[in-house]
């Protein structure tokens, strides 16, 4: 996929994807980046990911806590708040509708 297109699409959905990943379990930045990579998005750079995390934290959808990991040094762990769970439910429903519209237009 052309990099620029990928970047544009990702910008629109990265916060939803991050919320979804954190909906499964709490995580930290690098782990999220790896999960997104594994999901097929390719490498998400820190410069893109962390501002999204900070914005979600600012708007109260996620909270963060510095903790020592099982191995290695302290990391900043994020998890969903109640507001975040509600937002995730709403956004994933919105996405299904939106993706359905796109599909419908393309496949006709």
């Amino acid at each position: 996929m052309d990099q620029e297109r990928r970047g544009q699409w990702l910008r629109g959905v990265l916060d939803v994807c991050v919320l979804a990943l954190l909906g499964r379990r709490e995580s930290y930045g690098y782990e999220l980046a790896q999960a997104l990579d594994a999901a097929g998005f390719g490498q998400i750079q820190g410069g893109t990911l962390y501002p999204v995390l900070l914005r979600l934290q600012r708007t109260g959808l996620i909270t963060a806590e510095w903790r020592e990991g099982a191995s290695g040094p302290a990391r900043k762990y994020y998890r969903l708040t109640e507001d975040g769970e509600q937002a995730l439910a709403r956004l994933s429903a919105d996405w299904s509708v939106f993706a359905g519209h796109v599909d419908a237009v393309i496949r006709r």
Binding site: Y28, G29, Y30, G46, Y50, A74, R75, K76
Partner: peptide, 9 residues
């Protein structure tokens, strides 16, 4: 915090 998080990453 921002610097530490970037460093961890």
């Amino acid at each position: 915090h921002v610097v530490a998080e970037a460093a961890a990453h």
